[in-house]
């Protein structure tokens, strides 16, 4: 998400990229479930990230080569993925008998399952799994790529001013595709973690709107790695706290979505204020004169 924002792209498709990553991880994890963990897990990891990246790169390509607004493409992609998953699980190749009551795929191999590091017995209502390490690793990689590599510099340059970057010999179109692919890779990783850490399979209605929240998280985190982590924790607390409040205190969980909505709206309003403040400042040329 945040990677794409940095290059000035607005990626609404995180939801579908997450789902594609989850489906790829679930399919590969189940198909090659007989392999031992050290071999299986990297394959599932690559499948999840790769599928998310490839799916997002389509939107990046259409933007770069055909000038199609990525918002339109990614929203359309969200719907396409939802229906394709319905098909895959209801009467497509991934349909498997199960006792969940909803259409679901076969479970992934044990080797690909992320171990749980804090079991329910220790701290109730958590299922903290090793995915947290993958997430932390992803944040570090994100920071390193964006701030410590030539590619990251070029991506940020395109985000700050595509035309100026082009003058400096950076092709904005290539970087549009790369940025979307990286963003899709992170979303695919998120989907892969959901499959390997929490559900161990893909089922109908898998996504609980994580991708939608990601837009809010990236905006709130202002696209910096630390900010994204803090914002993700806040929204995680919203989601978790919402259901606990409803169970224990009779407080509506919808209140949480209202608060989330207000948070996002305040962010938007804050953006607006910043735009206004910049307008009021002296223009560069006048400042020199």
């Amino acid at each position: 998400m945040a990677v794409a924002f940095r290059t000035g792209l607005f990626n609404i498709g995180a939801e579908s990229q997450l789902l594609v990553g989850a489906v790829a991880a679930g399919a590969v994890g189940a198909r090659f479930g007989f392999l031992p963990g050290p071999i299986l897990f990297p394959i599932v990891l690559v499948a999840g990230i790769g599928a998310g990246a490839a799916w997002a790169a389509i939107a990046g390509y259409l933007k770069a080569a055909r000038g199609v607004n990525e918002v339109i493409t990614t929203i359309m992609q969200n719907y396409i993925v939802v229906f394709v998953i319905h098909w895959l699980l209801q009467n497509g190749p991934m349909t498997a008998p199960n006792a969940l009551g909803t259409p679901a795929s076969a479970p992934i191999g044990d080797g690909a399952v992320l171990p749980i590091i804090i079991p329910n017995e220790l701290v109730p209502l958590t299922r903290l799994h090793a995915g947290i390490f993958l997430a932390i690793l992803a944040v570090v990689v994100f920071w390193f790529v964006l701030w410590r590599t030539p590619l990251g510099y070029e991506l940020r340059a395109v985000g700050l001013g595509a035309r100026a970057a082009a003058q400096a010999g950076i092709d904005p179109r290539v970087h549009t595709v790369i940025a979307m692919a990286i963003a899709g890779g992170f979303a695919g990783l998120a989907g892969m973690i959901q499959v390997t850490g929490v559900f161990h399979r893909v089922f109908d209605g898998f996504s609980a709107g994580y991708g939608f929240d990601a837009i809010a998280v990236a905006l709130l985190g202002k696209n910096s790695p630390i900010g994204v982590v803090l914002a993700a924790l806040l929204f995680g607390a919203f989601a978790r706290g919402g259901s606990i409040m409803q169970a224990n205190a009779g407080v509506s969980a919808q209140l949480v979505s209202v608060i989330e909505a207000i948070v996002l709206f305040v962010i938007a309003a804050e953006l607006i204020v910043r735009i206004l403040a910049r307008r009021r400042g002296p223009k560069p040329l006048e400042a020199i004169a």
């Binding site: 607005f10 837009i215 919808q254 979505s257 209202v258 909505a261 709206f265 938007a268 735009i275």
Partner: peptide
Amino acid sequence: LRSDQIVSGMALNILALGLTSFLDY
């Protein structure tokens, strides 16, 4: 305010979803 129309639109979509769900309840 000349703000980003996509950001504003998405914010309002989420606001509408939260508000109607809450009031419905």
